[in-house]
Nucleic acid binder design. Structure first.
Lengths: 220, 220
DNA sequence: TTCTTGTCACCTAGGTGTTAATAT
DNA sequence: ATATTAACACCTAGGTGACAAGAA
């Protein structure tokens, strides 16, 4: 079994419509996809990997007037999808289960000619991250490539790939929750910034900000 | 077979009498121990590791008058030696041979109670780093623990563990060659600083500075 | 005296959104 | 209009030796 880390934060983003920046050089995801793994054979070898599948065959556009995403046509042609293998792979079940597994080396790019192994996505398209656990055998390795892998899909992790943020609330939530964006926060104290910006971004909607604070506090 | 990287730089330090800082929190080595590996079975698994053995059973003291190390008594009692396993271990021969293997995560400490897996050394004692390649089997794993590992010793990598640098020339060579110490260099340009400080440090001895420059240039 | 510790300014290395300029 | 790019200031994270204070 598999538990998504920072689920509260993913939920906050997902309710606003998560956006992930793609750049030519490659950009990390935020939130970072992290999972806690359970029920693995401690002495067997596994490969952990992620890929990204289109949510639909649409091209999207952000309508600033209505502050929402609208369909803007059929999907652009895409490269054959790449797979990101977690750099610790292959490793024993013991290794994967003894701490949270983080895909913080994974980068997203819009460069169709990327040669650094980054995940190639089309901007203005919507994607669903998928997580795969591949059993590569403990002692015998011959039953490979049949049924020995599992795929986990967390709907709250889907996002629009963008070259620049469209929804201003997403920008504010990124600034409020990503430590590397601290330079763009309005106030100083760590506690204040997260709560304040969130309340501003939600502008009255006010849906349980404590879930975000709970998520954030794990990162301190 | 195994080739020491940055041998020219190691030689320069060794001629002056290499010193490595040990701290309570753990300090990296500089130069970093790096090797190029040859002749491994690409599909077999190997563990790579390092340990540190005393060069002698002496305690040393630096005589500032004669600018040299002198024996100051018998060696202090030491902990059972620890082994640093390269974090990529275990991995296939292909992985180890396709790029330089760097032990830059290895840290030295003088804290006998260290609980972070760092290498514990006694200050004012002299050590010889050793590099081990352990074959852990391709398909069959039963001939383990007999003759299936090799040890490589590079004499030019031996050093004195210290809590503060003793030989001022070592300090100057560290400042000149370690990028993280750039803040202590006298001049600005990258090219100038390395050559100048070296010439000053050698103060007339003038032994082939080009070897150092050659080594350094690999790092740019 | 001799050695060790903790703090610090100064770096490397690289992850942020911003902004202005450029494509399309 | 709309989408993309590249340079940039501002961060996180952590590796340097210098230095003053402390310990043996």
């Amino acid at each position: 079994n598999t538990v998504l880390e920072m689920k509260g934060l993913w939920d906050e983003f997902n309710e606003l419509g998560t956006e992930m920046i793609v750049t030519k050089a490659g950009r990390r995801m935020f939130p970072t996809f992290q999972v806690k793994l359970l029920g693995m054979d401690p002495s067997a070898d596994y490969m952990l990997m992620m890929d990204f599948v289109p949510v639909d065959d649409k091209r999207w556009r952000y309508a600033f007037g209505s502050s929402s995403w609208v369909v803007a046509g059929k999907a652009d042609p895409n490269m054959p999808p790449r797979i990101h293998v977690h750099p610790d792979s292959p490793a024993k079940g013991l290794h994967w289960t003894k701490q949270v597994v983080s895909f913080d080396k994974l980068k997203l790019t819009n460069n169709q000619l990327d040669d650094q192994g980054h995940i190639i996505l089309n901007s203005m398209h919507r994607y669903q991250p998928r997580f795969h656990v591949v059993y590569v055998g403990g002692k015998d390795e011959n039953l490979s490539s049949t049924e020995n892998f599992k795929t986990f899909v967390f709907n709250e992790c889907r996002f629009w790939a963008v070259t620049a943020y469209q929804n201003h609330r997403i920008t504010q939530l990124k600034i409020a929750s990503n430590p590397f964006a601290k330079g763009f926060r309005d106030c100083d104290a760590d506690d204040c910034s997260v709560a304040d910006v969130l309340n501003n971004a939600q502008s009255g909607t006010q849906r349980r900000p404590e879930s975000v604070l709970g998520s954030i506090s794990n990162r301190v």
